[in-house]
């Protein structure tokens, strides 16, 4: 096992524990959730294999589900994101390609690219998650407000962490 693999395993545990112990209890105005664990899948190295990505996502989603008493819900949304992630990364490759050995981070590719990368994927994740949980579109606008406020909250925390690690690296 090389260093980066160990780092990935550790950050898996950290993301999971942060999600179930801290962010699970942190719901703002009864509508804004922070699903930080999605960022773990988004931040895995660019060259990660699609299959491995989906399997990791499934396990992570499943474990989150156990704590939310919502078996299958987070796993389903996260596997979808893991499936879409690599296709989306190819689509938005910057000019000159990605730097070898760099993750899809803000530090490596800049804020604009990072927003283009994370916003749509986070939106799809939250959209699928909340509308599946609501069991359809009966309370559409309320559910939509949950999607949007959670998107803002999650994005805020993700960006905060990106800048935090950005400073440390320099």
């Amino acid at each position: 096992m090389n260093r980066s693999a160990i780092f990935i395993v550790i950050s898996f545990v950290v993301y999971l524990l942060a999600q179930v112990m801290l962010f699970r209890q942190l719901v703002l105005f009864n509508t804004a959730f922070c699903f930080l664990y999605v960022a773990f899948v988004l931040m895995l190295p660019i060259e990660t294999n699609n299959l491995a990505l989906m399997l990791i996502a499934f396990v992570l989603g499943f474990l989150v589900d156990v704590f939310y008493d919502s078996l299958g819900l987070h796993a389903m949304s996260l596997v979808l994101i893991a499936y879409l992630r690599n296709y989306w990364l190819v689509t938005i490759t910057p000019q000159g390609g990605y730097d070898a050995g760099e993750g899809p981070t803000l530090a490596a590719n800049g804020l604009q690219w990072f927003l283009v990368y994370t916003l749509p994927l986070l939106f799809i994740h939250h959209f699928v998650l909340f509308f599946t949980e609501a069991g359809g579109f009966r309370v559409f606008w309320f559910t939509m407000s949950k999607v949007m406020s959670s998107l803002l909250f999650t994005l805020f925390v993700v960006l905060f962490l990106q800048y935090f690690s950005f400073d440390r690296r320099r």
């Binding site: 499934f58 589900d65 919502s70 078996l71 299958g72 819900l73 796993a75 389903m76 596997v79």
Partner: peptide
């Protein structure tokens, strides 16, 4: 995987 999740969900 999606089928498995949906099955658990139901």
């Amino acid at each position: 995987l999606e089928f498995l999740s949906a099955w658990m969900l139901v």
